[in-house]
Amino acid sequence: MSAFDLSARGLLLAGSLFAFAAVPALAEPPAPPMISVSAEGSAAMAPDMAVTTLTVLNEAETARAALDANNATMDKLMAALKAESIAERDLQTAGFSIQPRWLYPEPKDGQQVPPSIIGYQVQNTLSVRIRDLDRLGAILDASVTLGVNQGGDVRFTNDNPDTAIEEARRDAVSRAMAKAQQLADAAGVKLGRITQISEQSSSQPPMPMMEAQFAKSAMRSDSSVPMAAGENEYRVSVSINFEIAP
């Protein structure tokens, strides 16, 4: 190959590179202007179920004696709950423990005296779902009579809150749409298509009943524990992104 050919090839290659470099890089189109809003919607629903914990605590000189006493009480408690038409699926052991009780004597003649076991403590906790709220107070009262001596935490809930959550979601979207329209009107622009929607849901503790209603239930002639179920409030938060129409 001659020197002339090499020179010509070099000029051709250099020209190609120059032509490639002269082509401007394709710039990405700018992101369209957006309006982003968030809003919260809520809906209330009367609870149809209560979850409570019932604990039996026994102490004795030996672990065997404490366990036997605890088992006897728990057997009576579970039989009574089943007699209240509480299903097996609504009864669940939530905790069980056997613990020694220690005595820590005061130091004697400046010497530390080793601790000693003076007894044992057995604790059994049962989680109970009560679907007939009208029987809740009576069940708690009967449980104490049978030997329950700890627990009693009551949480009112709903077996199926989907209806309330759907209502809260619609409320949240409606509020967000109205807020976006207000912003667009104030800015003198028009809303375009929705590019993104996201949500977060949560529930709130029951709202207390009116004081007069609670007082009325507390003055009943039976020995049931007075209870106020109130309402559960479910909340949904949504965030929506809108393009601004050209």
Rank of each mutant, 00 (worst) to 15 (best):
F4G: 12
F4Y: 14
F4C: 08
L6H: 11
L12F: 10
L13E: 11
L13Q: 09
A21V: 08
A22R: 10
P24D: 07
P33C: 02
P33H: 03
M34G: 12
M34E: 15
S36D: 14
S38A: 13
A39Y: 12
A43V: 03
M45T: 05
M45A: 14
P47C: 08
L54N: 01
T55C: 00
L57E: 15
E59I: 06
E61K: 10
A65P: 04
L67N: 01
D75N: 12
A79M: 08
A80N: 09
Q92T: 06
T93H: 06
A94P: 02
G95Q: 07
S97T: 08
I98W: 00
W102G: 00
P105Y: 04
E106K: 14
E106R: 14
Q112A: 15
I117V: 13
S127V: 00
R129G: 06
R129A: 02
D132S: 10
L133Q: 06
L136R: 07
L136I: 03
I139N: 00
A142E: 15
V144P: 01
L146W: 02
V148D: 01
V148M: 00
Q150P: 01
D153H: 09
P161R: 11
T163S: 12
T163V: 09
E166L: 11
E166T: 04
E167P: 00
R169K: 08
A176D: 07
A176V: 09
M177I: 08
A178P: 03
Q182I: 01
A184I: 03
G192P: 13
I194W: 15
Q196E: 14
Q200G: 12
S203W: 08
Q204S: 14
Q204K: 12
M207G: 11
M207H: 10
M207Y: 09
M209A: 13
K216L: 09
S217H: 11
A218V: 09
R220P: 03
S223P: 04
S224L: 04
M227K: 02
A229K: 01
E231Y: 14
Y234I: 14
R235I: 08
N241T: 14
F242Q: 08
I244F: 02
